[in-house]
Amino acid sequence: MTSPSSAPLRDTFGRQVTYLRLSVTDRCDLRCTYCMAEAMTFLPRKDLLTLEELEFVAKAFIRRGVRKIRITGGEPLVRKDILHLFGRLGETLGQGLEELTLTTNATQLTQHADDLARAGVRRINVSLDTLDRNRFQEIARRDQLDQVLEGIRAAKAAGLKVKINTVALKYQNADELADIIAWSHKDGHDISLIEVMPLGETGEDRFDQYIPLDLVQRQLETRWTLEPEEKRDPLAGPSRYFRIQETGGRVGFITPLTNNFCAGCNRVRVTCTGRIYMCLGQNNHIDLRTPLRESADPEKALDAALDAALFAKPERHDFSIRTPGQSPALSRHMSVTGG
């Protein structure tokens, strides 16, 4: 067999990929209105990469220079035996991998927070769009706010650094964003606000949900002093961070629609079915599952697929929300791609 490549993953625009978002399932125990339809049809188990295949893919990326892996879904913690994958990847920390983390809705964290910490996870992102129980049930279509808040407390008790991710929704939580920020900072959590992304049919009109974050920022500045942070973490995602003088905490803005952040893109996404999407806002993808399952030399075939993917990585995404009733920019749901 050919020795596997260790060449850095660099695209045609000179950007090096150091950050992998690896989806392990399309399933979730919530049904957030901006992310999923109520009556979702989930993928059959045979279409998903096995935990062993997910590990193989992750280690191929680490060998090619990826230093941060975020496990995503759906809700990653609903996947059976998922802690085994965390344990296996945790063994690579300090041997190429610098950070292993996940994005979660926190409903399962009371059971798993301690095990995640033992596996080497140090920071996690928790999706939380409201602190009001009735609103939570309206947005998530499930009455589970208490479990989410319990999970956040369990994560903190386990020593995990929690960052809150909040999708800004014009009519459902825009009036509450400052309060969510204040609550987060009081509990010691950073927070990122995110513009709604036009992915997949959810039964909702994204135009009605969308609020530009430059408007939200101006509103926050009538209450607080926001100081931009100049130094960026090279492993960070697309948030532009500000320190709020009055609270001492940080707030980030993720703005795929109003402030394109593609120039510094250092990440790719691999779905639970083994498709690598070089850009969240494009449909182009490369199949990794076939090389894994059918090649006589899967390491060599996987390296070739990664090279092809990086060659095809676009300069920027094509997200837009322009008119009421506009179809989503892409038909696939965020839960399929991985957050």
Rank of each mutant, 00 (worst) to 15 (best):
L160D: 07
E75M: 01
L199M: 13
E91R: 15
D81T: 06
D129T: 05
D318C: 10
V167C: 02
F319P: 04
N125T: 09
L160I: 10
P238D: 02
I194S: 08
A168N: 01
G87D: 08
E221H: 08
E315L: 15
D146W: 10
L9A: 04
T290E: 12
D287I: 04
G339Y: 00
W183A: 08
R206N: 12
R153P: 13
E176C: 00
I181T: 07
I164L: 11
R293T: 10
Q326C: 06
G159S: 06
F13G: 09
A58K: 06
G281P: 04
K163T: 12
K300G: 14
K170L: 11
L169Q: 07
D179S: 13
P8K: 10
E52S: 12
M278K: 10
L102S: 07
A39F: 11
L226D: 00
G338C: 09
T72M: 05
V216H: 05
E204C: 14
L235E: 07
S295D: 12
D205H: 08
L226V: 05
T166V: 03
D114T: 14
V251L: 04
V148E: 04
D132W: 04
P4D: 00
H317P: 03
A174T: 14
A236P: 02
F42H: 13
L215P: 08
P8L: 08
E221S: 11
I276A: 10
E246C: 02
V162A: 02
I180W: 00
D146G: 14
D11L: 03
S3Y: 14
L213E: 02
L97H: 05
E201V: 12
A60E: 00
L306R: 03
L177F: 03
V162I: 06
R79P: 04
M40L: 09
C272N: 14
R289Y: 04
I276W: 03
R332G: 07
L93W: 09
